[in-house]
Write a protein that binds this DNA or RNA. Structure first.
Lengths: 199, 199
DNA sequence: CCTACCGATCGGTAGG
DNA sequence: CCTACCGATCGGTAGG
């Protein structure tokens, strides 16, 4: 029992360190020997905790995907205007990222190194998530909250781009702005860009 | 003479194919043998056209950087409002990207695989470019065109994120929207998010 | 542009 | 978690 717990914890240490390494060097350029060295063990020893290099990537990508999904589902239930729903969706996304910026960066940049059928599954999860944001935008256009002139695909991809690049430049230790405040400001900026301008 | 021209042309073919390969698999995961196969030659033969794998990456990254710089310099000269300047800067950036979406994707995603001192030089070019956009935003805040409440770093990084992810999802053959129209709409959406809301 | 080849490094296994 | 090791593949060179 104690052994199982210790193994689990050690496995998580391996995955966490791997996330840092994958983020810094990229999945393909990061070697298992690099990872072992960071953990102070031999490369071969890694395999008593994980099955393969890709298993680590899978666990990082799919765990993040689950967090994003959960956050959006929470927002979808709420009975608020389209712009407020979009705002909350954005803030939720930012908060999920802020909880683990390293895993978020890996999720965003390295998922393409997943092999099939995992890659396909991952991309399906992502397109589903994006489409749910798109639905919120479409509802807002229908009920007049958002401009009807905007291309909806462009709008949702722009939204996504802004969100997903955040881990690339946001440094919470930089003392610039808090995660929650970041989410609020980002949401304001992006939602305002969509809103019907009052004439 | 003819030989020199032929060599140059062949070298460009190599670089172009490499860009496609780097984009698809990532720089680190793309092998020179993959590249050779795409060109129908042996891996060793590549080295009569290029000095190294990294030379290709360098040429792709720095050529794109020069294009972006040129486009922004053009806009900076113009005597227009801050929001119009920002709008034109965005449209210019999109147009540069649209001219070579493949190289743009490599520029964005693979530059980190440059070795020193090239990486440092590249990052300096990029921060300079970003700062010039930031200056435009700061001017707009000063003269009252843009909200004073917005965090300027957040604003410029959000702008950048939206621009730089475009090659990841935009497919001009998809018949969705033309590059110029894309630039215009993206500019509208992003600039409107910054504008002072009339009370 | 090719054949032949190099040293280095890769992810991973066997067996303890 | 280690030692010892495997086959595969890497970027690149020599010499033509």
């Amino acid at each position: 029992m104690t052994e199982a717990i210790a193994n689990l914890s050690r496995k998580e240490q391996v995955i966490r360190k791997a996330a840092e390494l994958f983020r810094e060097k990229g999945y393909a350029a990061a070697s298992m020997r690099d990872l072992a060295q960071l953990l102070g063990i031999e490369a071969a020893s890694l395999y008593s905790h994980i099955k393969s290099k890709e298993e680590i990537l899978r666990s990082l990508c799919f765990d993040m995907a689950a967090e994003f999904r959960k956050s959006l589902e929470e927002v979808e239930k709420q009975n608020v205007s389209s712009s407020e729903k979009l705002r909350r969706g954005i803030i939720g996304h930012i908060q999920v990222m802020a909880k683990d910026l390293t895993a978020s960066a890996v999720f965003m940049n390295e998922h393409r190194h997943l092999s099939q059928p995992y890659l396909r599954d991952f991309l399906l999860l992502r397109i589903n998530y994006i489409n749910r944001f798109k639905t919120i935008i479409e509802e807002g256009v229908k009920n007049g909250e958002f401009k009807s002139t905007i291309d909806k695909k462009l709008a949702v991809m722009t939204l996504f781009s802004s969100l997903n690049w955040m881990p690339m430049w946001y440094d919470p230790s930089g003392g610039i702005i808090e995660p929650v405040e970041l989410g609020v400001q980002l949401a304001d900026m992006l939602v305002n860009g969509l809103k019907q301008t009052p004439k």
